[in-house]
Design a protein around this nucleic acid. Structure first.
Lengths: 153, 153
DNA sequence: TATTGTTATACTCTATAACTATA
DNA sequence: TATAGTTATAGAGTATAACAATA
């Protein structure tokens, strides 16, 4: 790899358009496992342990009623269960069912596969690695942003 | 840059979850200019010259009625105009108005700004460059995929 | 008869506003 | 009175099926 060379060819499109297009690719991959992006994001958070609607709304960057609506759909499909909170009885806890965990894993695999197929279009394993490395860095940025917001609280 | 070093730290999340989260960030940035991701994708294609609904549906990976619905909204807001096709009178041509071109530019800027803010969370210009380089590569993959599909036709 | 695009209809995600239950 | 979550309602994006107009 030429460390001093240009990072990549001229950016034919603004970063936003690329990200918006990538979002559609994810959506198409999720359709294969019959999951919408909001459902996938919610299952992912539950898989990581979050549970309270207010926390979910904050992490998902949506309003509380939206959490209710998305959870309704997942409950109806047996992927999530609502449980009454222990202490404060206004609160509701959400848990992933085994079915929900299975679908989440299927979704991860489906999207990963599609993204691999896309990087294969680059026709160069070196470029594939750089694309995946870049995506992982966006994940790190996500983690850093979350940590920063948690600290500000 | 250490060319032999690990590409990045351990991928805490599957690639799909990162991409899905990134999609939400784009959505939030677009909300500032009161545009939805589908509207942004459509404006972007029109800015690049596409015009026929059938071609738009193909490029956007949606069904024809969806194109009609999204264009309806953009026409109502004065960003796009429909014109009768020249030869085949079943066809309809779409053009970006000056207002549409302005909003598209605003959207590009808004998303770019937000993405920059995110990479700044990485706290290292080197990592920021690698993240943006990676995103540009996904754009190249998009171009390669499109070219492949066009060739298969 | 085949094709292009739209209309009709339904479902999900999203929001704001109003409501219920609890604290 | 304040807070957690849901219900009510509305608008956008999406799909399938049916339709109109044109070829």
């Amino acid at each position: 790899m030429a460390t001093e060379g240009p990072r990549s060819s001229a950016p034919a499109w603004p970063a936003g358009r690329i990200a918006a297009w990538l979002a559609k690719q994810v959506e198409l991959a999720l359709a294969v496992v019959e999951l919408s992006p909001p459902q996938y994001r919610l299952l992912g958070l539950l898989g990581d342990g979050d549970a309270l609607p207010s926390a979910l709304a904050d992490r998902l960057a949506v309003r509380p009623p939206t959490v209710t609506a998305v959870v309704d759909g997942l409950v109806a499909r047996g992927m999530v269960e609502r449980h009454p909170g222990d202490g404060d009885r206004r609160r509701v806890s959400h848990v992933l069912t085994p079915e929900g965990r299975r679908v989440l894993a299927d979704a991860d695999a489906a999207v990963d596969t599609r993204l691999r197929d896309l990087t294969d279009c680059l026709g160069d394993p070196e470029l594939t690695l750089r694309a995946l490395d870049g995506l992982a860095l966006w994940g790190r940025a996500m983690g850093a942003l979350h940590a920063r917001k948690a600290a500000a609280r």
